[in-house]
Design a protein around this nucleic acid. Structure first.
Length: 798
RNA sequence: GCCGGGAUGGUGGAAUUGGUAGACACGCAAGACUUAAAAUUUUGUGGGCGCAAGCCCGUGUGGGUUCGAUUCCCACUCCCGGCACCA
């Protein structure tokens, strides 16, 4: 027998797979044996310069096991891969080295592709996509334009994160604890014109439609929390008349312009009798409108300025210490009891949420209480009243608010999809005609943003200056690019028809393949990526270009693989385990088996190279088993379970457990029962060819290379990939006799062998006559004897 | 603070969802093979007492429900992840 040589075997089969493309998914194909389509998706990676570490492939391997099993079950499996390649790290690398981001991306994807292929993942490489290719981002831009046309993409002045030392705008995710992710400097909020996408218009559906999909419960919970639906009421508090006597006295027309009331949002309208003051956000527009009435406006203005200037760090450092200023000269009337109450501005009220104003009820709200105590305001234990009655009485309105904010879609960067808009002095922002798509990224000399934080694209003058598509006058291109979430918001649609030039995908392909049947990805993408792509998908559904209202039927998450010490793997910590080395030393099959065996798929777990020898030994055991197989003997085709009764029960329960566990992502226990089966086979003088073949089919999803090699060795012409997934016989799993435990007063004292069908009375009788049982029941009265069929007998004495 | 997830031998973990806790694997110990080592292999391996049969304890802590609890309920401790003044 030749020794198991992982290098030789893995190279041989990978070359074969590359040539023969057995994993290619066929559009509209109707595979045999209950074959339906099965679209399995993993999050496509960002090809960083560091290459893969052993944590990356965990989800690929897990989904690969499922893909391989489902193919064997006769399903038409689509299991694609691509590259989410726009983004900052590539741009930063280009900035540092002067190498074009396009070239950086190409080198990195080449390396990633090599590493993934080395693991024998059964991706359909014929559908590989890359978000940075113009043929791809043409359609990212096209979708943006449809949103623009429907008014869902708009420009607004919003507060962005500004790095004080880099002097550039940062995305939220680039700010860590108030510090710039790149330079570690402090950040503050700045107002800037940005493209926004109106995701909040979809907030209710994004929340409600979670009922229709099969996501793991924690994923749904996290999405719901992020959307932050809350039901409450908007109530008007009239501005007290004495504050505006001058206006009332005069018959000035300006009186009509003067605000009459302030609207608050509350979820506790029932506490309105305890509302002893009101608070507005410092940015609230009414503060400026009431300027003439506010007697201490200097003080107020100073507070507003200070609030604006505060950096994130300062705000965090101050903790929950409340600050604020009263708007002297302004009072409002509590509509429930007609009492006048004072008005404050304070930064604990957010301008963007609700109405930017609250009625403060210090008796029931901790934050209001804290503020009231600091400013010596009355705290009134009020009577609670019926919410509906209050709303009716004060002429309020029931409303639903969401924490979800519109999506800031602009980045003042280079390496992203150009936003396909042209700004014209006459016509305003105009969509680039669809026939002119894609708007390709121009060449620039320097990828650095300008000093005032504009995109490096402003320096590409010949690209920027164009004619207005509408009036043909002089106009300028939008120089902001899209965030890296854009390309990943719809990529799963492109896989269904990746080379289409007429549409992002043909309607027939979409109808056949979508929705994605199973999407696995990291928990860290649950709030942003998952929500963004659900939003885009719903929009595409509304404009009738996709057939389903949700993109993903099922969503699961994998746990991170941590370094041996339990810390996250990172280049800076120098604790990265490189899969190249692991594959070199142990082989891809061992790496695959180990990652599936090391622990529950959805939990974080520390890497341990020491523990890898276990699965390697297992593979070698399977390898050596070939010696126990008589190749000449037995059937040469099919994989019927044979009549070897000594293996019968374990064989059938292995088929059942492996089948069930793979679908439940309990890969670790699937492998453990395969190990038990192999240990049993090892004890035998001879293993039948049929049973060995079953073992190989069950093993193939986990360790495809060695399974193929052994399949060939035991004398089968066809590939293990062409085999039908074995079926188990429930009746063969059940054993004739079973050992059951006998408890006396809650403690196990003996166990007896009984035949499965044995009558209850007989079993009880048998149990009570056991010597080890008598010992414990002697001299006591047996009160009760319970028999839980096939499991346990419980005897209770007094 | 809020929302998730978790805690089981020396280690990673398993437990038919209320029914013999510790499957499978790593490590360790002793033996076999070998001139020797590696590889392989056999046996043992939760803790305590005992020559042994066996007994007692044991799933983060404290209580509860039950014939029976790792599993259900109540209170708490610690660890990991996310959000964070959202009215």
């Amino acid at each position: 027998m030749e020794k198991y040589n992982h290098k030789k075997i893995e190279k041989k089969w990978q070359e074969k797979w590359e040539k023969e493309e057995p994993y290619k998914a066929e559009d509209f194909s109707n595979p045999p044996a209950g074959g339906e389509k099965s679209y399995l998706l993993v999050e496509f990676p960002y090809p960083s310069g560091d290459g893969l570490h052993v944590g990356h492939p965990r989800p690929y391997i897990g989904m690969d096991v499922i893909a391989r099993k489902r193919r064997a079950e006769g399903k038409n499996v689509l299991f694609p891969i691509g590259w989410d390649a726009f983004g900052l790290p590539t741009e930063n690398f280009a900035l540092k080295t002067g190498k074009h981001p396009k070239d950086v991306t190409r080198d990195n994807t080449d390396n990633f592709r090599r590493q993934i292929q080395m693991l024998g993942i059964s991706f359909d490489w014929s559908r590989e996509i890359n978000t940075t290719q113009p043929e791809y981002y043409k359609w990212t831009q096209w979708i943006f334009l449809q949103m623009f046309k429907k008014g869902l993409a708009y420009k607004a002045s919003v507060a962005i994160n500004w790095c004080l030392s880099c002097k550039i705008g940062l995305a939220n995710e680039e700010v860590v604890d108030g510090h710039c992710e790149r330079c570690g400097g402090e950040t503050e909020k700045r107002q800037k014109e940005q493209w926004m996408l109106a995701i909040t218009k979809y907030a209710d559906r994004l929340d409600k439609d979670l009922d229709d999909v099969n996501y793991l419960e924690p994923i749904k919970i996290q999405q719901r929390n992020w959307i932050g639906k809350s039901e409450g009421a908007e109530l008007d508090f009239a501005i007290a008349p004495q504050g505006r006597t001058s206006f009332v006295a005069s018959s000035s027309p300006r009186n009509d312009l003067f605000p009459q009331s302030i609207k608050v949002f509350t979820t506790r309208a029932d506490t309105i009798f305890g509302a002893t003051y009101m608070v507005l956000a410092p940015e609230h527009a009414l503060v400026q409108e009431l300027k003439t009435q506010i007697t201490n406006f200097d003080e107020v203005e100073k507070y507003i300025e200070d609030a604006k200037k505060k950096t994130e760090i300062e705000r965090t450092a101050e903790g929950k210490e409340k600050t604020g200023v009263e708007l002297k000269g302004v009072k409002v009337v509590n509509p429930a009891n007609n009492e006048e109450v004072p008005v404050f501005i304070a930064d604990y009220v957010m301008a963007e949420y609700g109405t930017g104003a609250i009625m403060a009820v210090p008796a029931y709200d901790e934050r209001d209480r804290e503020f009231a105590e600091k400013f010596s305001l009355p705290i009134v234990e009020s009577e609670l009243v019926d919410v509906d009655e209050v709303i009716k009485k004060v002429k309020g309105e029931k409303v639903i608010k969401y924490k979800l904010r519109d999506w800031v879609f602009s980045r003042q960067r280079y390496w992203g999809e150009p936003i396909p808009i042209i700004h014209c002095g006459e016509c305003g922002p105009v969509a680039v005609p669809e026939s002119d798509l894609p708007v390709e990224l121009p060449e620039v000399e320097d990828y650095k943003p300008t000093d005032d934080g504009e995109s490096p694209l402003v320096k590409a003058e010949s690209w920027v200056n164009v004619k207005c598509p509408s009036c043909n006058g002089d106009a300028k291109r939008e120089t902001d690019v899209m965030p890296n979430w854009a390309g990943s918001s719809w990529y799963y649609l492109r896989y269904t028809d990746p080379a289409n030039n007429e549409a992002f995908a043909d309607a027939k392909n979409l109808k056949y393949w979508t929705p994605v049947d199973w999407y696995n990805g990291g928990m860290e993408h649950t709030t942003l990526h998952l929500l963004y792509s659900r939003f885009w998908h719903k929009f595409l559904y509304d404009i009738k270009v996709v057939p389903t209202h949700e993109p993903y039927q099922k969503r699961t998450s994998h746990g991170l693989i941590l370094a041996e010490g339990g810390e996250k793997m990172s280049k800076s910590k120098g604790n990265i385990v490189n899969p190249d080395e692991v594959v070199e030393n142990f082989g891809a099959d061992s790496l695959r088996l180990y990652e599936m065996f090391m622990g529950p798929f959805d939990q974080a777990i520390s890497w341990s190279t020491d523990n890898m020898v276990g699965v390697r030994r297992f593979i070698e055991k399977v390898w050596r088993l070939q010696e126990k197989v008589d190749v000449e003997k037995g059937l040469s085709s099919g994989n019927e379970v044979d009549g070897d009764e000594t293996l019968g029960s374990i064989l059938h329960s292995t088929i059942k457990k492996v089948s069930d566990d793979i679908e439940a992502m309990k890969f670790n226990t699937a492998i453990s029962i395969l190990m038990i089966l192999v240990n049993e086979m090892e004890k035998k003088e001879e293993v039948s060819k049929e049973n060995y073949k079953i073992l190989l089919v069950l093993l193939a999803p986990f360790a495809p290379h060695v399974a193929e090699e052994l399949w060939e060795k035991v004398g089968n012409d066809s590939s293990v990939l062409d085999q039908v997934w074995p079926k188990y016989d429930e009746s063969k799993i059940v054993k004739d006799t079973v050992s059951i435990a006998i408890q006396v007063d809650g403690k196990v004292r003996a166990s007896i062998e009984i035949s499965v069908g044995e009558a209850e009375e007989k079993v009880k009788e048998k149990a009570l006559s056991e010597e080890d049982v008598k010992k414990w029941t002697e001299g006591k009265k047996v009160e009760k004897v319970m028999y839980i069929k096939g499991r346990i007998i419980s005897i209770v004495t007094n």
